[in-house]
Amino acid sequence: MLLHKVPVEIRSDDTGRVKINDECGLACVFCHNEGTPVTADNRDAEPGQYTGTPGKTGRVSIYLADNGAGFLAARIEPGPEFALALAGLRGSIRTREIHFTGGEPTLHPRLPALVRQVRDMGFTVGLTSNGENGAAVLEECATAGLDRVNLSVFGTDGAELASVQAPRFRSTTLAEKKIAALAQTIETGLRSGIKVSANLVVSDSTQIPRALRIIEQYGRDVTVRLLLNLETEKPSRQAILDTLAALDAVPVRHIITAGTSDERTRYRLPDGRTLYAKNIRPVRLPDTCAACKFNNPRDCQEGYYGVRMYRAKGGPYMIGVCIRRMDFCVPIGEFVMSQRAREVQAFRDDETARLAALHALPAIPSSR
Rank of each mutant, 00 (worst) to 15 (best):
R75L: 04
R308E: 15
V307F: 08
R237K: 13
F100Q: 12
R324Q: 14
I186V: 15
L275V: 00
G306P: 09
K178G: 13
C329F: 01
A258K: 00
Y218L: 01
M337P: 01
Y305S: 15
S171I: 12
L358I: 03
I20R: 05
G79T: 11
D349K: 15
I323T: 14
G131L: 02
P235M: 13
F71W: 10
A312E: 04
F71H: 11
P167I: 14
Q301R: 14
L3F: 10
G314F: 15
I208H: 01
Y267L: 00
T265N: 01
A83N: 06
F154S: 15
E34F: 03
A136E: 09
E9K: 02
V118W: 06
V137A: 03
D350V: 10
D299T: 12
Y276T: 01
N21F: 05
V38Q: 05
C28A: 02
T101Q: 04
K278R: 11
G52Q: 10
Q217R: 14
S197H: 01
T39P: 05
G102Q: 05
E160S: 15
Q345A: 10
N133V: 06
T260A: 02
A175C: 09
E139F: 11
S152R: 06
Y218R: 00
G145A: 06
L269G: 00
V202S: 02
G134N: 01
